[in-house]
Design a protein around this nucleic acid. Structure first.
Lengths: 339, 339
DNA sequence: TTGTAAGCGTTATCAG
DNA sequence: CTGATAACGCTTACAA
């Protein structure tokens, strides 16, 4: 039936049926305005007749563009990253790119492996979360020369092209808010700083902001970044009995767990304890009590990352990215410090 | 510097340095035990020396395998699908496959376009959510002959290879639970059934289960499948004043919104109104009150989908998939019907 | 504007 | 087990 065996029709088949050369058929498909209208019509008709679907592997090899972009992130099982992927995919898909999603679950070696995988796949662009990849990953990336953009940048001196926001600004907002409410001793629940740049930055930022406002950070507990981690963290903090009147959480997921654990333990929030989050994910507004948190610019980071990557693929240099704004969202989980 | 201009080293360069033919180099890389140890060592050393990273586009074209699998889903901005992608990615990545994620946001035309995109990219396998794709999509898939697996299947007579669970079983559990608590009139909040097979199945299932238990479904409201949709739905239901004593929600995200809206409206749950969800996402256990829901087998669907797809790629026929079990999770959002 | 032909980087076939 | 050589399906100079 098909001009060749029974595999799906190739461009050569289309060309033959249209009565033009392979080259013209290719041009008709990819550069419609580089051929005569008549040729274009013939090729299109033939393609339609054969229900031709181009094979991107051939195209990718010949043109050296895969039309795919990869994102390597910690985990998609955290609403903030899911939201990021959501928006990233949306932006990229609109421009014809397909998104590879690779989650390393906070395993550095896996992250390196995934980055290498994207290089092998010849992804046109790569989106990274943070800049604390292994040296080997950095080398691979440099040698491959694939346009790469770092998001959630936390560096004090980030490369101008990195995309991020100021964790210090965010923590300062939280600290000032708590200070106004009369809190003097605060404790923190965060992710493990050694395997997570962002956790480290948030701890350091809280410390710095607290110092500036003459507040004491009575204890810092490292917990997994999910609801259960928050529950666990609350228990650990309680045992510490460090006299803190507010619990600053490095992510909303942790805070959500804390709120639940506090309720179970009979600790009234915010009457006896104020709790703050970080990210402002969807559920934060409907927790009980609603969570005071700082909104992180996820949507903007996704948009900017996509836009800059695409611009780079058009030959433009990677633009510099100013730090994106964060915003304090005051809700019901914070209140005056108990006396 | 590099044997060829300055693009990255190719396998030919490795072969030359190792003093073997291109063919042997290829075999050494892909079928290590098909070459003499000495050859293998020479090639590996050369590859190492050149920091050779294979190019998958070439491999894909020649071997007709891309080592990539695509998942086309409604949206990743719903925790249940995010969890699905999470597990799917995990399973596939472990076997060397990379996952393309395409979200159509409940747009059928977009879904078809994405499916075609995966065919063009020559994905080795495709994972679909539901079986209500456009006819064109089905054709494309059939002609392409790419192993495809349907998850979240809701058909009464599903293809044996489809993966899913019984919405009727789930709704029956909910109805029986509510019946025992004395409820007789229940209302439902669900997604729009015309653009969403699962929403339709859940509505029909609730109706059937209710009928069997001599219960009345007093009203059904269609809302977007997220928290805000639930809030909106609660308001609409209140206006209907249909006398229902329980609100059955088609997803936990909707139920979460309802719980919040009810609290704001001063409606006590479960004293004045019982609320049920569907899925058992992470947050459901920590909502106030904790949500009674039915646990949907997301992890299992992801595992089975991955396993079956991979098996098929090994040449085995796609296995039949028995319906996966659901489980009622009783928490605090349901209680005796008010008198 | 078109056809011809040479790649793109790998695998696969087939003698040796 | 190895080496030559022909694909794989498409793009892209280059000439006409």
């Amino acid at each position: 039936m098909k001009p060749n065996g029974h595999s799906r029709p190739r461009l050569a088949d289309v060309a033959k049926l249209a009565g033009v050369s392979l080259g013209s058929a290719s041009r008709a498909m990819s550069h419609p305005d580089a051929v005569k209208p008549k040729t274009l019509a013939a090729v299109r008709a033939a393609a339609e007749a054969l229900q031709y679907i181009p094979d991107e592997s051939g195209r990718a090899l010949a043109s050296r563009r895969t039309l795919s972009i990869g994102v390597v992130l910690p985990t998609i099982n955290n609403p903030i990253f899911a939201a990021f992927v959501h928006h990233l995919q949306k932006e990229l898909a609109a421009k014809g790119y397909t998104l590879f999603v690779l989650a390393h679950e906070y395993d550095r070696a896996a992250e390196t492996m995934y980055i290498e995988r994207l290089v092998r796949r010849r992804a046109d662009g790569i989106v990274l979360i943070g800049s604390d990849q292994e040296a080997e990953a950095q080398n691979i990336l440099k040698r491959a020369g694939i346009p790469t953009v770092v998001t959630w940048s936390v560096q004090a001196q980030p490369r101008a092209t990195d995309i991020g926001f100021s964790n210090l600004d965010a923590m300062t907002m939280i600290v000032e808010h708590l200070a106004k409410l009369g809190h003097r001793r605060i404790a923190m629940l965060s992710g493990a700083p050694d395997s997570n740049e962002r956790a480290a930055a948030r701890i350091a930022s809280l410390r710095e902001a607290a110092t500036r406002h003459y507040m004491t950070v009575s204890s810092v507990h490292h917990v997994p970044l999910h609801i259960a981690g928050g529950q666990e963290g609350f228990a650990r903090w309680q045992q510490a009995s460090d006299g803190a009147t507010a619990l600053v959480c490095a992510t909303d997921t942790i805070a959500a767990g804390v709120l639940h654990a506090a309720a179970l333990a009979g600790v009234a929030v915010p009457a006896q304890l104020s709790v703050t989050g970080f990210d402002d994910i969807d559920i934060s507004a409907i927790l009980t009590p609603a969570l005071t948190t700082v909104r992180t610019p996820v949507v903007e980071m996704a948009r900017v990352a996509a836009a800059s990557l695409l611009a780079t693929l058009q030959g433009e240099p990677m633009p510099a990215h100013p730090s994106l704004p964060v915003e304090l969202v005051v809700r019901a989980s914070t209140g005056p410090a108990p006396v």
